[in-house]
Design a protein around this nucleic acid. Structure first.
Lengths: 143, 143
DNA sequence: CTCATTGCAAAGCCTTTGCATGGAG
DNA sequence: CTCCATGCAAAGGCTTTGCAATGAG
């Protein structure tokens, strides 16, 4: 069994929730796609394989998957909430193409260190670090 | 006349738009408040002084003020679009308290340099840099 | 059996827009 | 006069929730 599934199962146990197939199926589809997915997009993918699962179940399952620490949320100017993998997924930043909306991930470990320092100076207890660059990807810039 | 007002006036001229009082009044109230304001919050403040101005005018005026380069947009997980001053406002990052939602600005010039480097590596043409730290402010952390 | 979960549809909530009226140029 | 801007109200678009039916424990 996939490690992520075990983690979800454990999270469900700890929280005293019920182990339903829907939750594992949503997780399975979520893990099978490396994109940043909105609930709607994920629902679309889930439906292809498991047409019996509803939009609200995908929505609520993602909430649980998020709470289990398996997904991270992103929200950009389009207003859509998107989820990305967070389990054993290296810390990274996002470059977002204003034209084609493509998201490129990049390593930001050094930056994180500077952010930690900044937080310390302001006596702020950091939990999550985010770095983002808006601009044009190679393709859109040369087009 | 305030420098920002001149800039707005010039922007309006260049774009061939009309110089209406509403636009200048919205700008005035926006500049008088150093907070990060959503259109709704700004509308509330505008209404106190100029009750005849409507919500949609505030909304549309902020769009123009944004295009004139006088305001920057922020969008967090609450989903609300907020505007902050951007004219002669030093480049900075945001620390956002998950508890009281307070926003603390911090200097991120060094970080910006690293981000530029990262963009170059991915052949990405950067336009806007964003850094954000979620966590707890001093007060909420000790409470 | 009991109570959490599902699916459906609808409510919420902010953002954005259509349209008739008003006002700058 | 000509059109852009304004105000109002309503439409959009995504997220979230109420409720009756279903199913895990």
């Amino acid at each position: 069994m996939k490690e992520e599934k075990k983690i979800l199962r454990k999270h469900i146990e700890i929280k005293g929730l019920r182990k339903t197939n829907q939750r594992y199926k949503v997780l399975e589809v979520f893990l099978a796609n490396d994109e940043h997915l909105s609930v709607d997009e994920l629902y679309f993918l889930v439906k292809k394989r498991y047409p019996e699962i509803s939009h609200s179940t995908v929505f609520r399952s993602m909430k649980i998957i998020f709470n289990a620490g398996l997904a991270a949320k992103i929200r950009n100017f389009d207003g859509l909430i998107k989820y990305e993998h967070s389990y054993k997924h290296k810390q990274h930043g996002h470059m977002i193409c204003s034209n084609c909306l493509k998201i490129i991930e990049f390593d930001d470990i050094q930056i994180k260190e500077l952010l930690k320092k900044a937080a310390k100076e302001k006596e702020f207890k950091p939990q999550i670090f985010r770095t983002k660059i808006l601009g044009l990807c190679k393709k859109c810039n040369s087009a």
